[in-house]
Amino acid sequence: MMKGLKKWRLFGLLAALTIFLSGCGEEYLSTLTPAGQVGKDQYNLLLLSTAIMTFVIIVVVIIYVLAIVKFRRKKVGENTIPKQVEGSHTLEIIWTAIPIVLLLILAVPTVSLTYKFADTKAMEAKDADGNAKAVTVNVTAKLYWWEFEYPEQGIVTSQELVVPTGQKVYFNLKAADVKHSFWIPAIGGKMDTNVDNINKFYLTFDKESDGLKDGVFYGKCAELCGPSHALMDFKVKTLSQDNFNNWVDNMQATKGKKADKNSTDLGEQVFANSCISCHAVSGEGTGGGVAPNLAAFGDRNRVAGFLEHSEDGIKNWIKNSQELKPGNIMPEEKALNNGKEFTDEELDALAAYLMGLSVEK
């Protein structure tokens, strides 16, 4: 009796957990609230496959229950053997034809959408002046951060992807070290980034992100890539076309910007002496940097992709980067500062300087 009750307890727990998890979706992260046409198409495909699977389960359960009820021993007797249907041509045709039909219903839209999402010919289209008609972003995945280069605009940023709404945005995906996977759950996609080839696809962004809880959509690495895989996040800021153009202009305006070792700003001095060899503070340029570009660091949503975006978050990252994100290439504090730890004054000044690197304020 107790054993049976334990089984029902487990069933009740799983049922409660299912109900609980059904409310966990957030608009900026959930595939169940798509905010782009690609995501909507994939969501509809998910609904179709779920409906087919549910239909199959219901049919099998009905047949199973009917068989139990109709041929139970109390009804037909202990020694009665029901009529056997083995070799029935009618039944063989039915349970062969139905799965084929269901597979075709699922396969046709799946194959169609797969080829549709891979159609990137418009990426090469030019206007009368020879400028690209579409926005293209070269995405490079690295351990454990993301670089976003806009080749037509001549700018580069990292950790926070900025895109216009209402149009197709094309992506060239590659990895600098190991296999990663680029995924924005609420927008759609999920495409591997490889070291030895470039994958291409497009996404559309229907909604501006400023109305979301954190003001951004969340992006993820969806391929196990190392000890800090779970922390390899990026954020997506979607803007109207005019605001996107302003952002591009502001990024281009940082051309030639550098940190000065002789600056009267202590934070800039510390950065120029300790960080400038890896990090750029100009958004104008090309990709391939050793470390994330910091031109728009003050506009970001997170520090290192997952820490609170604040001066305390910056100081915590500088002092404990290997503990917080194991396997990343950020040097330890003493390696940055000629074998010494930063003083509290230096850390405060450096954090304030980094928070001031902005193209939106």
Rank of each mutant, 00 (worst) to 15 (best):
Q84K: 15
V85L: 15
G87V: 12
S88H: 13
H89W: 14
H89M: 15
H89D: 10
T90S: 12
T90R: 14
L91P: 02
L91M: 14
E92V: 10
E92A: 15
E92S: 15
E92H: 11
E92Y: 12
I94C: 10
A97D: 01
I98F: 05
I98E: 01
P99W: 09
I100C: 09
I100W: 11
V101C: 05
V101T: 07
L102N: 06
L102C: 06
L102W: 04
L103P: 00
L103I: 14
L103K: 00
L103W: 09
I105W: 00
I105N: 06
I105E: 06
I105Q: 07
L106P: 00
L106M: 14
A107M: 11
V108G: 04
V108W: 05
V111R: 08
S112P: 04
S112C: 06
T114Q: 12
Y115G: 12
Y115R: 11
K116W: 10
K116Y: 12
K116I: 00
F117V: 09
A118H: 11
T120D: 06
T120G: 00
T120H: 01
K121D: 15
K121N: 09
A122V: 08
A122Y: 06
A122W: 05
M123T: 02
E124D: 14
A125M: 08
A125I: 03
A125N: 08
K126A: 01
K126W: 02
D127N: 13
D127T: 01
A128L: 12
A128R: 09
G130P: 13
A132Y: 10
K133V: 13
K133T: 12
A134R: 08
V135Y: 04
V135L: 08
N138I: 11
N138A: 11
V139A: 09
T140L: 13
K142S: 15
L143D: 15
W145P: 13
W145M: 11
W145L: 01
W145K: 07
W145D: 10
E147D: 13
E147Y: 12
E147G: 14
F148T: 10
E149Q: 15
Y150L: 12
Y150C: 08
P151R: 00
P151E: 04
P151A: 04
E152R: 03
E152V: 01
G154V: 12
I155H: 05
V156D: 09
V156M: 01
T157S: 12
S158M: 03
S158Q: 02
Q159M: 07
Q159A: 07
E160A: 02
V163C: 00
P164T: 06
P164D: 01
T165K: 10
G166H: 07
G166F: 03
Q167N: 05
K168S: 03
V169Q: 02
V169R: 03
F171A: 08
N172W: 03
N172S: 04
L173E: 03
L173N: 03
L173S: 04
L173Y: 03
K174T: 15
K174R: 09
A175L: 08
A175W: 08
A176W: 08
D177H: 04
D177Q: 07
V178F: 03
V178G: 01
V178N: 11
K179W: 05
H180K: 13
H180W: 02
